[in-house]
C-alpha cells in the first residue's frame, strides 16, 4: 500500500518535538504543526491552544491532497511548498519526507524568507527522524515484537466505547 501505517514511539516523538520547538524559536513563528498526509495531527508547539488543531490538521491534509492532484494534472510530482498570505497571519506548508506535512503559522514578526530558510534545515532533521521511525516500525513488525495494545481486545471493550 502507498502509505504504511504510521506508528509513533516515545523516543522519536521527543526528538520531533525538539526539532519543531527549535524551529518555532528560530523562525519566530507563532505555531507549528506536524500532520500526517491522511489528516491526523502528529504534534504541535507554540500557541496551539488558540486553534482547533484537529480541524486544522484535516483541512491541511485536504489542501495538500488537492494541490497534489493539481500538480499531477500538469505533470508535476507534487507541490512541496504552499504559502497562504493573510492580512495578519500567514501559513507556510511543506511536505517532509514525502508523507508528513509541516505547517508554520507566522505573522509580521517573521518573514517568508526566514521561515523558508529555517524550514529547510528542520525538514532535513525531521526527514532523518521519520526515516528511522519507519525503519523501526518495519523491524518491529518483522520480528513480531509488537507491544500493540489491541491484540487482547474483546467485543465488550468495543461495545463499551459506544455505551
Amino acid at each position: 500500500m502507498a502509505n504504511p501505517q504510521l506508528i509513533m514511539y516515545d523516543e522519536e516523538f521527543k526528538q520531533i518535538n525538539a526539532v519543531i520547538e527549535k524551529l518555532l524559536r528560530e523562525a519566530n513563528a507563532k505555531v507549528i504543526f506536524l500532520v500526517d498526509k491522511n489528516g491526523q495531527l502528529i504534534t504541535g508547539c507554540g500557541e496551539t491552544e488558540r486553534f482547533d488543531t484537529t480541524s486544522l490538521a484535516s483541512l491541511t491534509a485536504g489542501n495538500i491532497a488537492a494541490t497534489g492532484g493539481l500538480a499531477k494534472l500538469i505533470g508535476e510530482k507534487e507541490f512541496s511548498i504552499l504559502f497562504h498570505e493573510g492580512e495578519k497571519d500567514n501559513l507556510h506548508i511543506s511536505i517532509v519526507a514525502g508523507r508528513v506535512i509541516l505547517v508554520v503559522l507566522f505573522d509580521t514578526r517573521s518573514s517568508l524568507g526566514l521561515v523558508r530558510l529555517r524550514v529547510k534545515k528542520s525538514s532535513e532533521e525531521l526527514s532523518a527522524i521519520f526515516g528511522r521511525l519507519m525503519q523501526k516500525s518495519e523491524e518491529k513488525e518483522k520480528s513480531g515484537d509488537s507491544e500493540f495494545p489491541f491484540a487482547e481486545i474483546t467485543d465488550d471493550d468495543i461495545d463499551n466505547l459506544f455505551s
Binding site: M1, P4, I7, D10, F13, K14
Partner: peptide, 15 residues
C-alpha cells in the same frame, strides 16, 4: 491507515 501514537497513547482511524 490508522495512526498509532505510543507517546501520547492515541489511535486515530479514518472512516
Amino acid at each position: 491507515m490508522s495512526f498509532i501514537n505510543y507517546a501520547s497513547r492515541e489511535i486515530n482511524c479514518k472512516i
